[in-house]
């Protein structure tokens, strides 16, 4: 049976993705029995969602500058 500390490592490093059947089963059994690790696992999923949200839109001025530079580059001799 895995310890909580091992479960936390396996989940956050995504080592479980490449784990064999037995290891995966062990992780599942632990999660079924351990409220704390279930909560932790749920939080990590929420973190990924938060990361996707966090990067807000890029200011229009930055995009304009970038576009101008790209078009200048295009105008240079090939």
């Amino acid at each position: 049976m895995y310890r909580c500390s091992e479960i936390v490592r396996l989940i956050s490093s995504e080592e479980y993705l490449t784990a064999g059947l037995l290891k995966r089963l062990g992780i599942r059994l632990h999660l079924a029995a351990c409220r704390n690790c279930r909560r932790y696992a749920r939080q990590l999923r929420a973190l990924a969602a938060a990361l996707r949200e966090a990067a807000g839109p890029v200011p229009a001025a930055e995009i304009e500058t970038a576009k101008r530079l790209v078009l200048e580059r295009l105008a240079q001799k090939p």
């Binding site: 310890r3 909580c4 091992e6 936390v8 409220r35 704390n36 690790c37 909560r39 932790y40």
Partner: peptide, 12 residues
Amino acid sequence: KFDLQGKWRQPP
């Protein structure tokens, strides 16, 4: 965060 048995000392 974990005790000697590898259990959470405090719930997350």
